[in-house]
């Protein structure tokens, strides 16, 4: 967790997290839907997705939420505790696309940091959101 020096100093507003690239495979979309108990047909059945106006299946919001959470705790380490995750979806994640998550620390208050997260794919911004995370003592020092 050293890319931006968080091992030697606490995060500061303006710090950028290293990007995380996630290949959007059909398998990831379907596995994410099943692991989140979401059986909406648009997340596994391409034909029915097309009938509902989508060119193919697309990732469900719970999977996006899980990936955003992972992105933050990957960076801040296992001692970091997620307090709040608020996301908005835009361009859908379809199979064959790639999503790149980026993050910027916007606020640090005591042991709590707020990170602005954007996940961009080939169509635009799939997800924008903010994550509030409590950091372990050594990361804040």
């Amino acid at each position: 967790m050293s890319t931006n020096g968080t091992a030697t100093r606490g995060p500061r507003a303006g710090d950028e997290l290293p990007p995380l690239t996630v290949p959007i495979t059909r398998t990831l979309i379907v596995a994410g839907a099943i692991a989140s108990r979401d059986y909406q047909d648009v997340h596994h059945d391409a034909e029915l997705a097309r009938e509902k106006g989508s060119p193919d299946i697309f990732m469900n919001i719970l999977t996006t939420n899980g990936l955003v959470g992972r992105y933050i705790t990957d960076h801040f380490g296992p001692g970091a505790v997620l307090r709040r995750v608020a996301i908005r979806l835009g361009a859908p994640n379809h199979p064959g696309d790639t999503m790149t998550l980026t993050g910027t620390v916007t606020e640090v208050d005591g042991d709590t940091a707020v990170v602005r997260v954007v996940g961009a794919n080939g169509l635009g911004h799939h997800v924008t959101g903010t994550v509030t995370v409590a950091l372990p003592g050594e990361a804040v020092a």
């Binding site: 648009v42 469900n60 919001i61 719970l62 505790v81 995750v85 979806l89």
Partner: peptide
């Protein structure tokens, strides 16, 4: 289709 999710833990 879901558009927003805000969670507090």
């Amino acid at each position: 289709v879901a558009t927003d999710c805000e969670q507090e833990y």
